[in-house]
Design a binder for these strands. Sequence first.
DNA 1: GCCAACGTTGGC
DNA 2: GCCAACGTTGGC
Length: 154
Amino acid sequence: MAKNYWLIKSEPTSYSIDDLAKDKKTDWTGIRNYQARNYMKAMKAGDEALFYHSSCAVPAVTGLAKIIALAVPDPTQFNSKDYHYDPKATKTKPIWCSVAVSFAKKFKKPLSLVEIKAVPALETMLLAQKGSRLSIMPVSKQHFDEIVKRGMSK
DNA sequence: GCCAACGTTGGC
DNA sequence: GCCAACGTTGGC
């Protein structure tokens, strides 16, 4: 199967690209949106993802991550103390899942949403659409390559 | 802090 | 199954 490309959003105040660079890898937990979950289930080890900072001064793609493990039940759904606790989820019937991702690259220059929207080749990206709120979304190889090229050049 | 664009919930 | 009310996301 061919490699797939994704975009994963995170608020830098809770988990930034620098946190991932320091940790080397992390479990992507706390996703509570069915569409995002379904995309996560479609992820395969080896897939690559754009790491996007949202809800901050300059929303931007700031680096790259790699999917290193398939979706497993998200442990935070069972923990009543956790912010992401879901009382409807049970161990035998989990609702939410998480994947493990590893740090790949930090961009030399973050590519901001404003810049992305200004590039004709990128304007069809889901991210650039009005009202696009998905925290995990698929990205075409063409768009992925274009963003990496821009992010890794000065 | 505002608000558009969704998604979710629950009454009927 | 409809839809109004409410909650959340996230850019600005």
